[in-house]
């Protein structure tokens, strides 16, 4: 079977799950927005600018999060970029595009960086040696055993970067935006 790119929701959910940040609560109706007190709900065009996901539930899976008809809120921008259909129209099949604005999101979005930081923190807990940490990381991100030479390659990349925490964050970040993570096979 040819590889299939994860959908926007799945990219978000999988990153949260791997970084240990996912709220696993399930079931129930769609979650509400968190709406600032001074917002006029009679002027819904301001909704996408001002509304946020409810901080109490914003780590739950994407399927429970509210959607906006005009375009998703900033915290769910991954959907706007990764072909989430327009909720005003019928969509028999989503298109799957590959554009540089998606790459920019993966490279620089605060959400992705936060997940990389959380994943680095998880990785640095417990295991004593760098090799053990890399092994744990590969299992966690790719759900498979490391291949021969792989641990050394990842370890030496991290070792080549300045700063211990930053180096692990960048390694984790790289794995989270790699094809093996972004494509189902």
């Amino acid at each position: 079977m040819s590889p299939r790119r994860l959908e926007g929701e799945t990219i978000r959910d999988a990153m949260l799950a791997i970084s240990g940040q996912l709220d696993p609560a399930s079931g129930g109706p769609s979650l509400p927005f968190w709406v600032p007190g001074n917002m006029n709900l009679g002027k819904p065009e301001f909704l996408s600018d001002n509304a946020k996901l409810d901080p109490a539930t914003n780590r739950r899976r994407s399927i429970y999060q509210p959607t906006v008809r005009k375009g998703q809120v900033e915290e769910m921008d991954v959907l706007n970029l990764f072909d989430f259909p327009d909720t005003n129209q019928i969509t028999g099949a989503r298109s799957t595009t590959t554009v540089p604005t998606q790459a920019l999101y993966l490279m620089n979005a605060p959400f992705v960086k936060q997940q990389a930081t959380a994943l680095a923190n998880l990785t640095l807990q417990g295991e004593r040696t760098a090799s053990e940490r890399v092994r744990k990381l590969i299992r966690r991100v790719y759900a498979r055993a490391p291949e021969s030479g792989e641990v050394d390659r990842l370890r030496s990349y991290a070792a080549s970067l300045p700063g211990r925490a930053e180096a692990w964050e960048r390694l984790c970040h790289t794995l989270l935006i790699s094809n093996e993570f972004l494509y189902r096979r």
């Binding site: 790119r5 590959t98 554009v99 540089p100 604005t101 998606q102 790459a103 920019l104 993966l106 490279m107 094809n179 972004l182 494509y183």
Partner: peptide
Amino acid sequence: RVASFELA
């Protein structure tokens, strides 16, 4: 996908 990162 690889090319898109270079473009970005």
